[in-house]
Simulated scan of single mutants.
Amino acid sequence: MGPIREALAAAARAVILPAGLPKLTCTGYTPDSVIAPHFFTGEYSLDFDRTFARGTDRAELTCRVLVGRADDAASQQLLDLLLSGSGPASLKEALEAARGGSGEPALGGLANDFHVARVQGYRWYEHQGTTYVGAELTVNIYGDGRS
């Protein structure tokens, strides 16, 4: 799962924030400290044997995006941009660009396919003693169960 998590973080780096805002930092793991705004992959669940003979497994990966809260309204406006369904600041659009073309494997061959399924948990998060506004993105990943 580690290479998939790193590939998703790399895809998230394609986000383009409006001029004057700090660049989105991204990690494929839960960081000790955050340089906001920050995207990272977190916990996951794994469903084995979605098809017979170890044909397909499905992972549900929870990712988080945290934004600093120097100004509550501005922070939430930035988070809204990151959580939008499209546009240069959209995490969904940046991540799903790594799906590959029709018939191609996703994430450079690490998965058969994936999609950003849901945003949830839009709220205040505490991370290492600092409070951020943030949300969770649920990513469903499908891959060969034999590898």
Rank of each mutant, 00 (worst) to 15 (best):
E104Y: 01
G85I: 01
I35Q: 14
S84V: 00
Y29T: 13
F40K: 02
I16L: 11
E93A: 15
A94E: 14
A19K: 08
E126C: 00
S84Q: 07
L137C: 05
A74T: 13
Y44S: 12
P3M: 05
P105N: 09
G55F: 02
A14Q: 08
K92R: 15
P37M: 06
A97R: 15
E104S: 11
E43G: 10
D71F: 03
V133D: 02
S33H: 07
S33I: 02
Y44H: 11
G143L: 08
I35C: 04
S86T: 05
S102R: 14
E136P: 02
D57I: 10
A9D: 03
I4H: 05
F48G: 02
S102H: 12
P3Q: 03
Y132W: 07
Y125I: 01
A70V: 13
G129E: 08
D144K: 06
P105V: 00
L61C: 05
V139S: 06
Y132H: 04
L81Q: 13
E6C: 02
D72R: 14
G87K: 01
A94F: 08
L81C: 02
E60S: 15
G100M: 05
V133I: 11
A53N: 07
F48S: 08
Y142Q: 04
D49Y: 12
T51R: 15
D47K: 15
T62R: 15
L83A: 08
N112C: 01
S86E: 14
Y125Q: 02
D72L: 10
F48A: 12
A74R: 12
L79V: 01
L107S: 06
W124V: 12
G109F: 03
Q76T: 04
C63G: 01
D49M: 12
P88G: 02
E136N: 13
V119P: 03
E104V: 06
A10T: 09
E126N: 09
V67G: 10
E126A: 07
L17M: 09
V116F: 14
T62S: 15
A36V: 12
S33V: 06
Y125G: 03
R13E: 15
L61N: 06
E6I: 07
L17T: 03
R118F: 01
A135N: 00
D71K: 04
T25E: 14
T131G: 00
L137R: 09
A12I: 05
V15K: 06
P88N: 03
P22L: 10
E93Q: 15
A70N: 10
A97L: 14
L24G: 06
F114N: 06
M1V: 13
A117R: 15
A70T: 13
A73G: 00
I35V: 15
F114W: 12
A11D: 01
E60A: 14
G121A: 14
A10V: 11
A19G: 07
A89L: 03
L24C: 05
Q76C: 02
Y29I: 04
A97I: 00
P31G: 04
D71E: 06
A11W: 03
H115M: 09
G121F: 10
G143I: 00
T62M: 15
T51C: 00
V34A: 01
S33D: 11
Q128I: 00
R64E: 14
L83E: 10
